[in-house]
Simulated assay, not measured.
Amino acid sequence: MRTSQITMLVLGAMTLVGAASITPASADPYDYPWCAQGPSLGYPGECAYRTYEQCLASVSGRFLACGENPRFLFSEPSPPPRRHQRRHRPVYPD
């Protein structure tokens, strides 16, 4: 009887720790240049398309249109990656 109580306590604690570590899903996991736009999707829409052709294929038959993603258009470009410069030690002749 005592073993089952300890087991239940450990399982309950593990469940609480697991539930506490869950983070909410992002409302917009993609930020690509093209968005499917329409009244049912809000603004700027479903921005999950890298090309205009992908967007057109997705909106076909859905009463939606394709438009450019304003967050993508007006975002600041990310800085170029920094290159690690190697410093050479001077070599002196013997």
Rank of each mutant, 00 (worst) to 15 (best):
P80S: 08
R89P: 09
A48F: 07
R83I: 15
Y49T: 02
I22A: 07
A19E: 04
R86E: 07
A19C: 09
V17W: 01
A48C: 11
A19M: 04
S75A: 14
A27Y: 15
G61W: 03
H84S: 12
Y30W: 15
C55H: 08
L11D: 04
T15H: 00
C35D: 03
S58W: 10
V17I: 06
E68H: 05
S4C: 09
L41M: 03
G61H: 04
S75F: 08
G67Y: 02
S40F: 06
A20N: 06
D28P: 04
S21L: 08
T23W: 06
R50I: 11
A65Y: 05
R71L: 09
P39G: 05
E76I: 09
M14P: 04
A57F: 03
P90M: 07
W34T: 01
S58N: 06
F74I: 05
V59Y: 00
M14A: 10
E68A: 07
S60P: 09
P24S: 12
L9C: 02
R87A: 15
I6V: 13
N69Y: 08
S75E: 09
L41H: 02
L16A: 00
F63C: 14
F72S: 10
A65E: 10
S21I: 04
G45L: 01
S58D: 13
F63D: 15
G38L: 01
I6Q: 05
V59A: 01
E68F: 01
A36V: 02
R2F: 08
L16F: 00
L64W: 00
S21R: 01
M8K: 10
P79A: 11
T3S: 14
F63R: 15
P90E: 11
Q37G: 06
P70K: 03
A25Q: 13
M8F: 07
L11Y: 02
W34D: 01
V91P: 12
Q37C: 04
P44T: 01
I22R: 05
D31V: 03
F74T: 13
S78F: 14
G42D: 05
T3P: 11
S60V: 11
N69Q: 11
R50L: 05
T23K: 14
